[in-house]
Amino acid sequence: MRAIWKGAVSFGLVNVPVRLFSATENHDVQFRQVHVKDGGRIKYQRVCSIDGEEVPYSDIAKGYETADGQMVVLTDQEMKSLPSRSSKEISIEKFVPADQIDPLLFDRSYYLEPDKTGLKPYVLLRDALEKADRMALVTVSIRTRMTLAVLRVRDGVIVLQTLLWADEVRQPEFDFLSEDTQATDKELAMASSLVDSLAGDYEPDEFEDDYSEAVEALVASKIEGGEVKEAPAAPAEETEVVDLLAALQRSVDKAKAAKSGGTSTSEIREEAAEPAASSGKQGAKKTAKKAPSKKAPAKKTTAKKAAATSTTKKAATKRKAS
Rank of each mutant, 00 (worst) to 15 (best):
T263H: 01
Y211W: 12
D76S: 07
E240F: 15
K131S: 09
I223V: 08
E168T: 09
Q45Y: 15
E270T: 06
M190V: 15
A183Q: 11
L244K: 11
R46I: 04
A277Y: 08
R170A: 12
M79A: 07
G118T: 08
D102Q: 13
R126G: 00
A8E: 06
P275F: 06
K120L: 14
F31L: 11
D155H: 08
S87I: 04
A61G: 02
T301V: 11
K290D: 04
V29T: 08
A166F: 11
A191Q: 09
L13N: 00
A316N: 11
E203A: 07
P235Y: 02
S278P: 00
L177A: 05
A321Y: 09
E271S: 05
D253F: 06
T311A: 13
L13W: 07
F106L: 15
K318C: 08
K94D: 05
P275Y: 03
I268D: 00
S266H: 02
V150E: 09
S221C: 02
D175T: 05
E227M: 03
T139E: 14
P297A: 05
Y122M: 00
S91A: 10
N15A: 09
D68P: 03
V159T: 13
L177S: 02
I92F: 01
P292A: 01
V215D: 04
L137T: 09
K313G: 03
E54W: 05
S293F: 13
F31I: 06
D76K: 08
G262V: 05
S10A: 12
M135S: 13
L104E: 03
P83E: 04
S293L: 13
S279G: 14
A273R: 08
S293E: 14
R2W: 09
G226H: 01
I158T: 08
T181G: 01
D68G: 01
W5S: 09
T239E: 10
I60Q: 05
Y44A: 07
K62N: 02
A296H: 07
I268W: 01
A214G: 11
E130Q: 13
E224K: 12
D180Y: 00
R134C: 01
E130F: 10
S192E: 14
A284H: 05
V138A: 03
H35A: 08
L105S: 12
P275D: 04
K289P: 00
K290L: 13
E25Y: 07
S221E: 14
A233K: 04
P204K: 06
R269T: 11
A67N: 06
S279V: 02
V29N: 06
T312H: 05
A308W: 00
L151D: 10
D107M: 06
G40A: 11
Y64Q: 10
E65M: 06
I4F: 15
A272N: 01
V55W: 11
L82N: 07
S260I: 07
V9I: 15
D209S: 01
E230A: 02
T302S: 15
S193I: 15
G52D: 07
K254D: 08
L248H: 06
V73M: 06
V9Y: 04
A23L: 10
R319F: 14
D28I: 02
R143C: 04
S310F: 05
A284T: 09
A149Y: 10
D76H: 04
E230Q: 09
S86T: 15
Q182Y: 14
E65A: 07
Y44E: 05
K80Q: 14
D76T: 01
A220R: 07
T239Q: 10
A8V: 07
P275G: 03
I223Y: 05
Q77H: 08
E206T: 08
T144V: 10
H27I: 01
L148G: 05
